[in-house]
Amino acid sequence: MEIRSERNDGRLSLYPEGEMTIYHAADLKPALLDALGQSDAIELDLSAVSELDTSGVQLLMLMKREAVAAGKSLALSGHSPAVLEVFELLGLGGWFGDPQVLPPNLQASARGAA
C-alpha cells in the first residue's frame, strides 16, 4: 500500500495504490488524515485501489466526515472496479456525492434499470 501525492494550485491529489484493507488500515488512517490537514481541497484518486473492504470504506467515510466538518472539500474520483463494486453493494455512491464512471457491464444494467 502506497500513497502518492501531488500538489496542484493548492489542490492536493492523493493516489492510494493497492489494497485498502484491514491489513493496511493502521497505516492508512494517519496517512489519509495527515493529508487532510495539509490542504483545503483534496482529491482522492481511487483508480489504483485493487481491493476495498469494510475497514477501507470506513476510513473513506471518516475522511469525508472530517472534511465536511472542517469545511474542506474532498472529492473521490477514478473509482476502480473494486471500489465501484463495494460502493454499489453498500449504496454509498450518493453518500459521498461524487460522480462515478460506471464500467461497461454496470452501465448496461443501469440503463436497463432506467
Binding site: 484491514i22 493502521a26 492508512l28 470504506v57 470506513q58 467515510m61 471518516l62 466526515r65 453498500l90
Partner: peptide, 27 residues
C-alpha cells in the same frame, strides 16, 4: 435481491479515537 441498503456510519467516533482496525459500520 438486496433492494435497498443503507450504510450507517453514525457510530464512527471522532477521528482521533477511531481505531482503523475496529468496525463501526451498521447496515
Amino acid at each position: 435481491e438486496i433492494c435497498h441498503l443503507a450504510t450507517l456510519a453514525d457510530a464512527l467516533p471522532a477521528a482521533a479515537e477511531m481505531d482503523p482496525e475496529c468496525c463501526y459500520l451498521g447496515f
